[in-house]
Amino acid sequence: MSEPIPAKPLALKSSEFRRGREQGWSALELLLDRAERRGVKSLRPAELEQLPLLYRSALSSLSVARAIALDRHLLLYLEDLALRAFLVVYGPRRDLLGSCRDFLRRGFPLAVQGARWHVLVTLFVLLAGCVAGFMLTIGDEAWFNTFVPAALAGGRGPASTRAELLDDEIFRAWPGVIDSFLIVANFLFQHNTMVGILSFSLGIAAGVPTLLLIGYQGLVLGSFLALHANRGLALDFIGWVSIHGITELGAIVLCGAGGLLIAEKALFPGRYSRVESLARVGGEAARIAIGAVLLFFLAAILEGGFRQLVASTPLRLLIGISVAACWITYLAVPRRGDTQ
């Protein structure tokens, strides 16, 4: 190589390529600017049709540019353009109403059925807590004060008499719209939903706090039951609780099951990485939690409205049983088809 070889004048492939495609890119950029600022809805139908085409061609431009172009700015620009278009094209689905219907019809029951073992385990822990609370409190009512915080006890305790419990609690006159609304919205719904959300999200801490929380709810319930049983009111109490309690406890159990589902995938990721495995189950678990929050809402309505309106124990038990039957049919009957 002693003699310098003059290079032939040559056309730059990358520059030619850019000239050929530039128009498409800037058209896409304009659409993206508008979609990002004012939402995809602001695009006209014709533009909406164009968007995925322009997106695909931007992707292919990027692939070509990576192979042939050494223009760093061009590469970075295309990288950004493709990413922006990708984010707009594959954004979340916005049809909220349709997906709500889909959720109620299939998504929620299917998610619960998928987690049936977790539901059973949570239910078992709740019952175990309930039995323990009952056994302890029935022998020594001092346990009641240990298990039940003052805010939940609402003045009830070892000092309550049979008559007090009957008149002030189980067959208290319906206080009217305003007061029952107050109780429900102010305390019960928020409290229960928080318990639910917590037992769900603590699943990420290997599920132990979830089970503790669920077991504790059982303790409280069992303790209440024992207090009433000691005064010969066990059946009346069950009737009083069953109107809303079935729905409410069901929701708590579902939240706990969601938490356990998360815990299981975090502890035993199987053939996926731990993070991957969590991400795979997260959406499913979230479905259960959302359904549970809806149940809490219904329970609160039942509790505030119907509980004191229906003043006979057999009727209350009947309502409780039919509510339970409804939920079991809704959640446990197999459904066809899979959701997204």
Binding site: A11, S15, L74
Partner: peptide
């Protein structure tokens, strides 16, 4: 969020032959 704009190309389509391959 990415937000790069396309700047002008730095080159003309053809390169002159004034530089040698070496």
């Amino acid at each position: 969020m990415p937000k790069r704009r396309l700047l002008a190309d730095l080159v003309e389509v053809t390169a002159s032959a004034e530089f040698t391959e070496r």
